[in-house]
């Protein structure tokens, strides 16, 4: 069964087509890269898939279930997690609390006004475990406001992974990182188990190439090339998009 099946998806903003008849089929465990220059409609596509905006037409299926009209807040419960390009974390809380909030989002405990959140092992221990995955366990108690940009990017990923998604959407996870930090994130992504499908957006082709098994090139809201890494890289249309730009 296809993990994520996007079918003939369209979206216009006031006459401007930002998503034009996009088809996308991501298999379970696949690593898919979506590239395209700035303004190609990559983030819009993600927002459509996560339901933050509703498409004009087309459909989205998650493991065979039609989620086109499901509210975006339901989608994490169906196994979809995402990170943001512009980091949207909880700046007043600790790293640990940021990750526990991600866990809590999927737990019925989130409505409980009586228990002490810091004394729930299922929240705290799992959050620490998720932080251990991204190498931040040692500074779990640190307030987010005292962390570096690279650390925050890893907190983003820890939060997404803590939700144990079946499909993970990464919005430019390397943006703004130093070379060292980028290497850390690359290693981290490589460690993610194969039962998680990953879709990554990146506008800089070089940094993400080795990650991808299949690549879709997005240009003016349209998928113009799709195929394996070699196919896409050697396709003249890819070169045109990137060089003729």
């Amino acid at each position: 069964m296809t993990a994520l099946h996007v079918n003939a998806l369209c979206k216009s903003f006031g006459g401007l087509r930002v998503t034009a008849n996009v088809n996308l089929a991501v298999e379970p465990g696949e690593r898919r890269l979506i590239i395209g220059p700035n303004g190609a409609g990559k983030t819009t596509l993600f927002n459509l898939i996560t339901g933050e905006i509703t498409p004009d037409s087309g459909s989205i299926n998650l493991f065979g279930q039609d989620i086109t009209h499901a509210p975006s807040r339901h989608r994490p419960h169906l196994g979809m997690a995402r990170t943001y390009q512009i980091i949207t974390l909880f700046g007043r809380d600790t790293i640990l609390r940021n990750v526990s909030l991600a866990l809590l989002g999927l737990s019925p405990l989130r409505w409980n006004p009586f228990i002490n959140i810091d004394r729930r092992p299922e929240l705290v221990d799992q959050a620490r475990e998720a932080l251990a995955h991204v190498g931040l366990e040692a500074i779990a108690e640190r307030p987010l406001s005292q962390t570096s940009y690279g650390e925050r990017r890893r907190v983003e990923i820890a939060m997404a992974l803590a939700q144990k998604p079946k499909i993970l959407l990464l919005d430019e996870p390397y943006a703004g990182l130093s070379i060292d930090e980028r290497r850390d994130v690359q290693q981290l992504l490589r460690k993610i188990p194969r039962d998680v499908s990953i879709v990554m957006i990146e506008h800089n082709m070089d940094v993400a190439l080795d990650f991808a098994e299949k690549i879709s090139v997005l240009h003016f809201g349209e998928v113009i090339v799709e195929g394996t890494r070699a196919e896409v890289v050697n396709d003249p249309r890819t070169k045109e998009v990137y060089l003729g730009h």
Binding site: T50, E52, S72, R73, H74, R75, P76, H77, R82, Y84, T88, L89, F90, G91, R92, D93, R97, S100, L101, A102, L104, G105, L106, S107, L109, R110, W111, N112, P113, F114, I115, N116, I117, D118, R120, L123, M159, Q163
Partner: peptide, 24 residues
């Protein structure tokens, strides 16, 4: 200190993120 209290504060600080994390 409760999870619900944390949820309420979360909607204050990052409503959009809370939605994306599965909160109503």
């Amino acid at each position: 200190r409760s999870p619900f209290g944390a949820s309420v504060r979360g909607t204050r600080d990052q409503a959009r993120r809370m939605n994306a994390l599965g909160y109503n």
